[in-house]
Amino acid sequence: MTSGDGKDHDLDAQAAEYVLGTLPSEQRQALARRLQHEPALRAAVDAWERRLQPLQELTPAQLPSDYLWQRIERSLDGLSPAAAIATPSRWWQRATPWRWTTAAGLAASLFMAVVLWREAPAPVPTYLVVLVAPQDQAPGWVVQASSPRSAQLIPLGMAEVPAGKTLQFWTKADGWSGPVSLGLIKPGERVEVPLETLPPLEDNQLFELTLEGPSGSPTGKPSGPIQFIGRAVKVL
C-alpha cells in the first residue's frame, strides 16, 4: 500500500490504466519500455494484473481454427534467434566511410568486396541484396548471404526510427504464401540472420524492413510502412 506519496500514486495510476488498457498508444509504448528497468513500476503493473484478472472469466472461450496451431508451429520452425542474440559489430561501427557511401560508391564498394571475397578461399557470397528506401531509392542496408545457413544484414548508415517504433526484417520468395519475419532490427545494427529453417535463398527473393511497434508487427505479417526494400541478386 502506498500512502500519501504523490509520486507513488502517479506511478500506481499509470500502472492501473496501462493494465486497464486505456492508455493511448504512445503512452502505452512508453510505459512498456519503462517496465524493463523500473522494478517499482513493474510491481505496480503486476499487482493490477492480479487485481483485474478475474474479469477475464467474463469472456467465453472460442475454439481456434484447425490451422492456428499449424501456423504457430511453422513460426516456431522459422524462429530466428537473431533479434535476441544480435550483437553490434564494433569494427563495422568504426568503419565510418561506409556510412556515407553514395549509391554509386556503394556499387563500387560492393564490387570490390565481392572481388576480395572471390580471391579469398573463405566463404563466397552467393547472393547480395541492396535494400533501398522506396521514396528516393537511397541505399540503407545490404544483405549478404555467404552460405546457405545464414545471411548478414549490414547497415550503411543510421536509419532514423521514430521513438516507440522498431524495424522488422522480412523475407519472401516468389512461391511463399507470405513474408516471414527475420526478427527486429535496431538502426545501425549489424545482425547475422540464421537461414537454416528457411528454404534455400532464391534469385529475386524479396527482403524488406518495415516500421512496426516496439514489439514488432502485432499480426505476424508486415503491418507498417516499408522503410527499405530490395531483391536478392546472384553475384557469382
Partner: peptide
C-alpha cells in the same frame, strides 16, 4: 485478427 494475436502470443510465450 484474434487468431493473429493468439499466434503472436504463443510465439512470445515460447520465446
Amino acid at each position: 485478427l484474434a487468431e493473429d494475436v493468439v499466434h503472436d502470443a504463443f510465439i512470445r510465450i515460447w520465446t
